[in-house]
């Protein structure tokens, strides 16, 4: 190797750069090594590439919202009690789930009279524009042509017409499949959830917001969960991928026969 440092040292230097601990001489040594070692250039990446990767780590760290509350250590029950409680809770959960499963099976087969509630997800259904719904359609902005003045406000990030769908889930609209929890069935939830998903230039969903709530937080959450799980084709401007927004709506209907 004629570049001053070997590949193992280059790895250490890359780590030093990633942690923001590199001196100017470290940077020079790293650059010189990359200039003479195409393999490390591909495997480790240049300084910008390192910054980009570490920015993802920082973004993940900043997205953390979990704040568990533990009991003070001395208040912990002995481990065997905890295990006993865990078993009791697991048995109770199995009993509840089997009961709920039976109920669902009955409902799907139309078995029990008067219990004909099955929740179905009707993808991309937009209700006819009543006074309230005009606003929601404008917010959705993808399934119908809203009035010009509404479009100007709600679709500022996307061009009009069919080009509105420049950010699309890979696999099409059907790739987003919400799975509402069983509690939604029990609550007989119903309604339309309109979402806006911010998608970065790599097609990764960054943020999902509820543009129009169905009125049921569990349904709204199930849509956002599904939307954050898929990849998208990014929006393109002059051939360059840029950030964009994907808008979609999901209508949930309990009693589809009605």
């Amino acid at each position: 190797m004629t570049t001053g440092v070997d590949c193992t040292r280059a790895e250490i230097l890359a780590g030093t750069l990633a942690l923001g601990e590199a001196s100017e001489s470290d940077r020079d040594a790293y650059r010189r090594h990359l200039a003479g070692c195409p393999r490390c250039l591909v495997n480790l990446g240049g300084e910008r590439e390192i910054e980009r990767v570490m920015a993802v780590v920082a973004e993940a760290r900043n997205a953390e919202r979990w704040e568990p509350r533990l009991r003070a250590p001395a208040q912990n029950p002995p481990a065997q009690w905890r295990r006993a409680w865990s078993w009791a809770a697991a048995l109770a959960a199995v009993a509840i789930l089997s009961f709920a499963g039976q109920r669902l099976a009955e409902q799907r087969h139309g078995g029990s009279a008067g219990a004909g509630h099955a929740l179905v997800v009707v993808h991309n259904v937009v209700t006819l524009p009543s006074a309230r719904d005009e606003r929601s359609i404008a917010a959705i902005g993808t399934q119908s042509a809203p009035k010009a003045e509404q479009r100007a406000e709600s679709l500022a990030m996307t061009p009009a017409g069919s080009a509105n769908r420049d950010v699309m889930p890979i696999g099409g609209d059907a790739a987003i499949v919400p799975h509402p929890p069983v509690t939604a069935y029990a609550q007989d939830a119903d309604g339309t959830t309109a979402i806006e998903v911010m998608v970065d230039q790599y097609g990764r969903p960054l943020k999902c917001t509820i543009a129009e709530s169905s009125g049921s937080p569990v349904l709204d959450e199930s849509v956002c969960r599904a939307a954050m799980r898929v990849r998208y084709t990014p929006r393109r401007v002059d051939g360059h991928a840029v950030m964009g927004t994907y808008r979609d709506a999901f209508t949930f209907r309990s009693n589809p026969g009605n």
Partner: peptide, 20 residues
């Protein structure tokens, strides 16, 4: 793991999923 509700919706960014 993610489906089990271990990660809140607003934590589930692409960066977070990639990192995990």
């Amino acid at each position: 793991e993610l489906d089990r509700g271990d990660w809140r919706v607003d934590e589930r960014t692409a960066a977070s999923v990639d990192l995990q």
